[in-house]
Design a protein around this nucleic acid. Structure first.
Lengths: 193, 193
DNA sequence: CGCACTCTTGAGGGAGCTCAACATTTGTGG
DNA sequence: CCACAAATGTTGAGCTCCCTCAAGAGTGCG
């Protein structure tokens, strides 16, 4: 979609499908910095894209021409989006700085988009390597944690692309993300409220 | 200065001294999310502060009454600040997701404010525990890495509050922030491919 | 069926944490 | 200025969690 370092200016909103943004370091290592689902906006950089954006599945996106020429109203909207992005980034810093593999994967599962009404079934459209690079783990560890949670009856994978959460309470507890506050801009990690 | 969860609306600019922002999780764990030096602005949250802000040294700050009533011009400025904060957060995600203790501490030293003209002497106003909680490490590991770098003659601590960088080239080679794909050095890191 | 790719699982090793002791600096009162 | 205590920092030993390496199982597609 776009590559790290290219000149920016256009943001995107996901209409359908899933997009990931990645940062590649000099040694070829990859850090997935975000997954974007229906309605999410990415590519808010002002001058040069700091990350690459890639399609995880087939996607349709809507382009947003951002500032600077757009009016104050849109500036306000961009500010709002940036605050949301900021809040998510903060969450990620805490996740990566203070959480174990088990907690990370649990939190990640809870952040997945729901497929059915009661939110027990989640879509898992990205490969394990993407999840690993997103959580700062290896594919192996992610796989092991999935297996562990399954063995304990907390989740139940349907196939590669779907999971059923059997015990969301326990998952919440494990993830250790109790939000002390309800603020809209503070934490929107559980993306669907 | 302000506490996590309090209602927001005022941002601050550091005029003198050093401020840290911290997030406390339910179990009492602490993640330092940022250090702010002269000219840096913090507390950009819209509704509730997501973090606590605390003085590391004696500080003087200037308050910024932020949006929403301020005009388009200030909105633009806030947008700019948010973008900067965003870029920093991205850096931190990569640091925490993909770097070793050695790389983290090296990068941290390089991010410290300079004291003298040639930038070899850096100020280190915060205690080791703050550095540890900032880098997602323990005080012990931070201390060990400092000792290691000192033993190799790369840095040379004056006292608790100041370091001299003896070999800045090696330091940012270690930190892995720059995109150079050379280095058959002892510190080279997990390649890929 | 066979190849490529993704995912799972096991065994071993290493980076960083925990626990613990000690050293150094800072602060306080005599 | 010294004595002592408290806070902060350093260092060592052992252990844990996750990474690495390796093999095997499941899946998709020609």
């Amino acid at each position: 979609m776009y590559g790290q370092g290219e000149s920016a200016g256009i943001s995107y909103e996901v209409v359908e499908g899933v997009v990931r943004t990645c940062f590649f370091d000099c040694s070829g290592g990859r850090q997935v910095t975000g997954f974007y689902y229906n309605g999410d906006v990415f590519g808010l950089e002002a001058h040069a894209y700091a990350e690459s954006a890639e399609a995880v599945t087939d996607v349709r996106v809507r382009t947003w021409r951002n500032l600077p020429e757009s009016g104050a109203e849109s500036a306000c909207e961009i500010t709002w989006l940036l605050r949301r992005a900021m809040a998510q980034a903060r969450q990620r810093v805490i996740l990566l700085g203070r959480k174990t593999a088990l907690q990370r994967v649990s939190a990640f599962i809870l952040s997945l988009p729901t497929v059915n009404a009661d939110g027990t079934r989640r879509s898992l459209p990205m490969p394990r390597t993407d999840i690993a690079d997103f959580l700062g783990l290896t594919m192996h560890t992610v796989s092991r944690v999935f297996s562990g949670l399954t063995r304990q009856g907390i989740i139940s994978p349907i196939n590669r692309s779907y999971v059923v959460i059997k015990d969301i309470g326990k998952l919440d507890e494990i993830s250790g993300i109790y939000t002390l506050m309800d603020s809209d801009d503070a934490f929107s990690f559980p993306r669907f409220e």
